[in-house]
């Protein structure tokens, strides 16, 4: 019994010592590697964004930032890991629009309130593209054809119940009925119009840069309030008389909601600073995703708006 008592006492002492050792240095956050949870597998848009940012943040914050890919359940597996990690700022995760859309389909056990968004670092409208040899030269031709031949044109998208789907449903409601062909593997989606297997593809420009630069894709229509500075000749959906909800693809960095304010402030400042660096500017220019980072309440609000728009579509 005495032995056990001494053992327990020793245990408490040791525990205390570790806690103090770690707490003493916790004053100057960060002092050990910060884990960046990318919620999708290596090679995707979220992964490339996360790795690029991690690399810049390492110099901003002065600690190493290893990237951990936790793919699964439309990004919710990674978010669950983020949510259940200690809210001490040593775990940061990516939170992207696709995952927010999945919440509307009851995927995952995460809610917008579980996370504190540090900043929306990428946000981009999507386009409808055709292959270079398509019969459609302009958006008007396309829309006329779609109206006269409902259900004939096929559009490669990332799946049902996504913002791609919402856009196509909204168009169908206005008399432009096109068939959603879901391709969950991005590589297959990109080849679909090239091989002539679908007529169109719905995609953000950053993911298909190679096809835009080579001229294999022609953008016909942008789903946005204003024309894109990089594509000044591409008309907006509004100009063509379409009444759309504008759902940008966005990518953010987030931490668990309970993370202390000063840690959040430190991280937020670092992320904002990182987006001003030349390295990031070159990267976002390459992927057509440059924007002034949205932080704090505004960022949180943007995510809720997106969630509500998708959920509303699924309701009816």
């Amino acid at each position: 019994m005495r032995k056990l008592g001494r053992f327990a006492f020793g245990g408490v002492l040791v525990a205390g010592a570790f806690a103090m050792a770690n707490a003493a240095i916790a004053q100057d956050y960060p002092n050990r590697p910060i884990e960046l949870v990318v919620t999708f597998g290596p090679g995707g848009g979220a992964d490339v964004m996360g790795r690029q940012l991690a690399q810049i943040l390492e110099t901003e914050l002065g600690v190493s930032i290893p990237v951990t890919n936790v793919a699964g359940a439309s990004g919710n597996a990674g978010l669950t890991r983020l949510r259940t990690s200690p809210a001490d700022g040593y775990t940061v995760g990516t939170l992207i629009s696709l995952t927010v859309a999945s919440w509307a389909a009851d995927i995952g056990d995460n809610t917008p309130e579980d996370f504190r968004v540090l900043a929306i670092v990428q946000s981009t409208p999507s386009f409808l593209y055709v292959a270079a040899d398509s019969r459609f030269e302009t958006a008007e031709q396309l829309l006329d054809y779609a109206r006269d031949n409902p259900g004939e044109l096929t559009v490669a998208t990332s799946g049902y119940g996504t913002q791609d789907d919402v856009a196509l449903i909204t168009m169908a409601e206005q008399g432009f009925d096109m068939v959603n062909v879901p391709f969950s593997a991005p590589g297959e989606r990109y080849t679909a119009p090239l091989g002539g297997h679908t007529d169109l593809i719905y995609e953000e420009p950053g993911d298909v840069v190679q096809f835009l630069e080579s001229g294999e894709y022609r953008p016909l229509l942008i789903f946005s309030e204003a024309r894109h500075p990089e594509f000044p000749d591409v008309p907006t959906s509004g100009e063509l008389g379409l009444n759309m909800v504008y759902l940008n693809t966005f990518r953010t960095l987030a931490v668990p909601a309970a993370t202390p304010e000063d840690v959040v402030a430190r991280l937020e400042a670092a992320v904002v600073a990182a987006t001003q660096t030349d390295a990031w500017q070159a990267f976002c220019a390459q992927t057509y995703t440059c924007l002034e980072p949205v932080t704090g309440e505004a960022a949180q609000q943007e995510i809720l708006t997106f969630f509500d728009a998708i959920a509303a579509q699924l309701e009816d």
């Binding site: 699964g72 389909a105 119940g161």
Partner: peptide
């Protein structure tokens, strides 16, 4: 098992 690739339901 898991999220289906087309509809995104579990």
């Amino acid at each position: 098992v898991g999220v289906d690739p087309i509809y995104g339901v579990a």
